[in-house]
Simulated assay, not measured.
Amino acid sequence: MLDIAEVAEKSGLAPSALRFYEKKGLLTSSGRNGLRRTYEPEVLQRLTLINCARRAGFSVAEIRRFLVAKAGDAALEATIAEKVAVLGEDIARLQRMRESLEHASTCTHEPLVECPDFKRMLAP
C-alpha cells in the first residue's frame, strides 16, 4: 500500500490533484492509514494513463467515461475516433514545428521568420 504522499511523490502530482481525481471518480483509495488516504500500487499506472490523456486534451469527464467503458460503446467509440483525428492533426503540427526549428537552428536568413524554407515547413 502507498499513502497519498508516496503516490504524489512517485507520480509528480500534488496530493490535492489526487484528491480531486478521487472526487471525480478517476481514482479510488483503498482506505486510510490514520488520516492519510492509501492506494494500491497499481494507482501509479492509472495516473500515467490519466496524465497522458490530460496532456492529449481529454477532459476529466472523458477520462472517467473511458475508464469505465465496455467494448461496443458506440458513443465512446465516436469520441475516441474524434480524439484520434485531433491527435493526428496535433502530431502533424508538432512535427512541422520541430522540422522548422531544426532548420532555424542553422538558418542564416534575415529575419529568420521570413526564410522561405522556414515558412514552407510550417505550412499545413
Rank of each mutant, 00 (worst) to 15 (best):
M1S: 12
S105Q: 05
R32G: 11
P15A: 06
L44F: 03
V68M: 02
E82Q: 12
R37N: 08
L94F: 04
T106I: 11
Q45W: 05
S30E: 00
A123W: 00
V7W: 00
V60L: 07
A71N: 09
S29Q: 06
N51H: 05
F66I: 15
H109V: 12
E9D: 08
E42G: 14
L26D: 03
E82D: 07
I91S: 09
T108Y: 04
L13I: 09
N51Y: 01
F58A: 08
L49W: 05
A69K: 06
S11K: 12
A5P: 08
E82L: 13
V7A: 05
L13K: 02
L26K: 07
R96Q: 02
F58S: 07
A81R: 14
A71Q: 10
L35W: 03
T108P: 12
K23P: 12
R55M: 10
F20I: 06
R65P: 12
L112A: 05
E82K: 14
K10R: 15
T28A: 03
R46Y: 11
C52E: 00
R96C: 03
C52K: 11
S59L: 03
F66S: 06
F66A: 08
T106L: 00
F118T: 13
I63W: 02
L101Y: 04
P116Y: 04
A78M: 06
L76K: 02
L35P: 11
G31E: 00
L35K: 12
D90F: 01
P15V: 08
L2P: 14
L76F: 09
H103A: 04
Q45A: 07
E102A: 14
S105E: 08
F58C: 12
A8P: 14
A74N: 02
E114W: 02
Y39K: 03
T106C: 00
C115G: 10
E77S: 13
I50G: 04
S11Q: 08
A104Y: 08
C107H: 06
P41Q: 09
E42W: 11
V60S: 04
Q95R: 15
A53N: 07
L2A: 08
T108W: 04
A104E: 06
G72P: 12
C52F: 11
R96A: 02
L13F: 00
E22T: 13
E99F: 10
E99K: 15
E102I: 15
L49G: 06
P111N: 04
T38F: 06
A69T: 15
V43T: 08
G34M: 07
Q45N: 04
E6L: 07
A74Q: 04
R54V: 14
I50E: 00
L87I: 15
R64N: 10
A92T: 09
A123N: 10
L26R: 06
L47C: 07
E82R: 14
I63D: 05
A69G: 07
A104V: 14
H103V: 07
S16H: 15
K83P: 11
K83S: 11
L87D: 01
E6D: 09
E62D: 14
G88R: 02
G88W: 00
N51G: 12
A53S: 09
E82V: 15
A14R: 11
E110N: 10
K119N: 03
L112R: 03
S29D: 03
R19D: 02
K119D: 02
R93K: 02
G72S: 06
E89V: 05
G25T: 14
E99A: 15
